[in-house]
Design a binder for these strands. Structure first.
Length: 180
DNA sequence: TGTGGATCTTGTT
DNA sequence: AACAAGATCCACA
């Protein structure tokens, strides 16, 4: 269904914690629940599910972009997200190390309805022993759902972990498997 | 079923 | 430069 176009965020913005960066934030109601989003130049920068609590909603964003210029508009963000969803290959700013990018690219190869084990992913990126690190890298991804981290499960068939909550992971997998 | 060691990356000190 | 903590895995009891 969805392929994502990775645009690496310029290093200077990461280094300076978002100084001189104009970031628009707002909440959207998705199929899987309330999510906070952040945008830069109309391009998605962050999407994370949360419980509606302001503190947890800001936590990740303020930590990484401490010095950014913030503005807030739910209406605008809802519109941006609508457009985002309608694109054949939507674009998103990506922030991460080389290794993390590799892992995220790898998980994006797994088609909807499928799952992979963390160890299979490790093989796919040619670092078969880096199994544990794969899990960490997946958990560091900033674009929930669109970087389909929920498709990574343990090799014994159990669910493993999920940054946004295990019940959500289970729900996503069941929706993708059955279409319900 | 559970525990311990192996293994790799990252953030923190 | 060293260390501890992870969304793991495998062997072995």
């Amino acid at each position: 269904m969805h392929e994502l176009n990775f645009i690496p965020l310029p290093n200077v913005h990461i280094k300076n914690r978002g100084a001189q960066l104009d970031i628009l934030t707002g909440d959207i109601e998705t199929e899987f629940g309330l999510a906070r989003s952040a945008w830069c130049d109309d391009c998605l920068l962050f999407l994370g599910f949360y419980d509606g609590d302001e503190v947890s909603g800001w936590f990740d964003l303020k930590k990484r972009f401490t010095h950014a210029n913030w503005s807030i508009s739910n209406d605008r963000v809802v519109e941006l997200y609508r457009q985002f969803c309608h694109q054949p290959k939507p674009s998103a700013w990506i922030i991460g190390t080389e290794f993390q990018m590799e892992v995220w690219q790898a998980i994006c190869q797994i088609p909807e309805g499928n799952t992979v084990s963390y160890s299979q992913l490790a093989v796919n990126i040619k670092k078969p022993k880096a199994v544990r690190a794969i899990g960490s890298a997946l958990g560091a991804n900033n674009i929930a759902y669109w970087v389909p981290c929920h498709r990574a499960v343990r090799s014994d068939g159990s669910l493993g972990g999920y940054r946004w909550g295990l019940s959500l992971k289970a729900k996503m997998l069941s929706v993708e498997a059955t279409g319900l």
